[in-house]
Design a protein around this nucleic acid. Structure first.
Lengths: 214, 214, 214, 214
DNA sequence: TATGAATGAGCCTTCATTCAT
DNA sequence: AATGAATGAAGGCTCATTCAT
């Protein structure tokens, strides 16, 4: 059946594409986007220079794709969070840890991708800056909304939820960078790291802090 | 007097150097390091291409200098903090706000520099990655120590101080990025932003949190 | 019958060849030889890239064939002229108009081919220059001979018949280019254009001109 | 005086530019635009590859400049014609010969330029096609107007002056091509060639032809 | 016959850096 | 100290052609 043949061909095509993309991630990771050469990528896969351009429009377009892959990874994971039925701080804590662990695991599995995102993405080309800004904006807005919901349910205290959102984002990303990308936090199991983050988030949002403010 | 003559000459030299460096910051800020051209820098100062090399070894070396300037700015400011006499949480809070405000002001005054640091620095060349890693390591270690001291004084609860340190760093830098670089936090006065950060830090480190954990 | 089968196969083969050649003419016409891509040609026929090379040795060889087709077209048409029985200027005029009309019609029917010849042919490859030079040389020599014959019959006056031949060629080809290729001569019917050409040729070759010269 | 220094520098700059342009003409002439390599051009001048780009934006822009040079050469020469005081056919003849000789001389002096124009110009890039079409349109319109004027003065008979104009252009350019570019007209002195052209033009435009038309 | 993925040579162009003046 | 013309290495990308299936 020709369909089968086509499927086979498609499969082969996809496999080659992935191979090249993975090689590119390695090269970008090792040398950075600007120092990365297409010749290095194809060489490490063992195909000719021209083959690269059968699968990607060019070096920059490929980077864009890699970036998108990463962002989708993160968004998909984070969006799996559902504040729906959460109505106690204990449930909230559990849920935050669950999502935090998922994210940590996903990023650990894609360590190079994560590193490229944090180190290179803003410095490749203006158009990607825009993409990334939008990503952070979306993330920030999403978390801001979550915070507002949690507040309405009496789970967190009142504060500037947008600032809170970006504090949370920053907290998480620096810890991710040090832990996932550089392995620079000693060797606590990931769960301990995530629990610290969640604890800190929760503690920083209890009513108790109102006393401190006065 | 020859000394005076030399001084004059030195002054002129320094002034030109600064002029070029400032122009470079603008160009790096606008186009990013890799897209920035030496020709743009010299053009905006109005000197010839060759003149650039009388003052700097090259584009990358200049970037290194700019990076150092920024790091020194931050280190100097942060290092002005002295946990010495702090013995109550209220004093701690005040002191943290003071330092936070200083840092915020310094970075606001050097907004372009700050932007370049966060967006470009990791993607220029491997050697700068090293510099920056060391900077973060130093910063992390310093804050870890501070945290330990504060704990010993009964001002904060027991936890993994290193994770706490990087959480704090991340919290601060993301908020700085959004606030100082992108003006993306609405327009709360800087003080409000800083106070939120400090509040959150303090709340996240009180004994009270132990209850939540149980 | 195997003969029949072979014929069928031959037919199919020829049909496909022609299809490709026609597509090539369109692409050469639209983009010019150098900007024309083999991929565009095969795509417009709906066959695979490799198929192209089953029918032609390559892009340049195909161009050569197209060029030959055009030259043959012209030569065949022009060669249909027979000064044989012409013995009055009126007959000469009629015959010239007849041939001119035939040529005009043939070129109008092959407008793209004509355009490609005039615009591209000399700039494809040195070997084609040679072909074209020979074509013009043949054409020039032929017309020179015709002129000599006409002169011997007292139909045209004495002059440098070779210069006259190329004047005639040039007159015709520029008018063809403007009329056939660019439609740039307003919309006189082709016959008017041809009659102008013939008139001019004849007038420029009567004895009468001797008076003017004096 | 700095002015002098600048002049010197300008001179040197212009000289180098011309050197490169002349080399380019040779290379374009010899290999055609598409086969011509920038490396060949710079090599023949003895400068580095990059130097080329100090003087020209690129290979194609340079071609555009060469083309403009040629067109200007022709236009300037042709435009030197002034039908102003011409009121007899003899004067007309003399004036046409004069302009024809000027053009011939100019083109002979720029033989390679002329060859490039006729062989390559239409096949380099679409934008140049436009330029050239406009050139011919201008030329055609100019000559059409001249013809109308000459007719009003009773110097030439009535006919389609636009067709006549393009016939004249074609006559001239083919003869130029054969004579100037290929030296293919035997070795009559240029004057003889020009006089043939003029004679033919004049004869083809006398009242006498009206008889032929009837 | 047909396919289309793979090839790989080759060229234009950029731009940091140098150096003679 | 300043100039700016010259350098030349380096790499992304194209596309006609091949060949295993």
């Amino acid at each position: 059946m020709s369909t089968r043949g086509n499927n086979r061909r498609e499969d082969r095509r996809d496999r080659r594409r992935d191979e090249l993309k993975r090689a590119a991630i390695d090269v970008f990771y090792e040398h950075g986007f600007h120092a990365a050469k297409v010749s290095q990528i194809v060489q490490s896969v063992g195909v000719a220079q021209g083959t690269f351009y059968l699968y990607f429009e060019g070096k920059q377009q490929l980077f864009g794709e890699i970036l998108s892959d990463f962002l989708e990874l993160v968004v998909t994971t984070v969006a799996s969070w559902e504040p729906g039925s959460i109505d106690t701080r204990e449930l909230l804590r559990e849920e935050l840890v669950r999502v935090g662990m998922m994210l940590t695991e996903v990023l650990l599995e894609n360590q190079r991708l994560t590193a490229i995102f944090f180190k290179e993405a803003m410095a490749v080309a203006p158009e990607f800056n825009e993409t990334i800004r939008q990503f952070y904006e979306t993330l920030g807005a999403m978390i801001t909304d979550f915070n507002a919901i949690l507040h309405r349910r009496g789970l967190i205290t009142n504060m500037n939820f947008r600032i809170l959102a970006f504090m949370t984002v920053g907290m998480a990303e620096r810890v991710i960078l040090e832990h996932v990308v550089y392995g620079n936090l000693g060797d606590p199991p990931p769960r301990e790291v995530v629990e610290h983050l969640v604890m800190h988030f929760l503690a920083g949002t209890t009513e108790a802090i109102d006393n401190t403010q006065t």
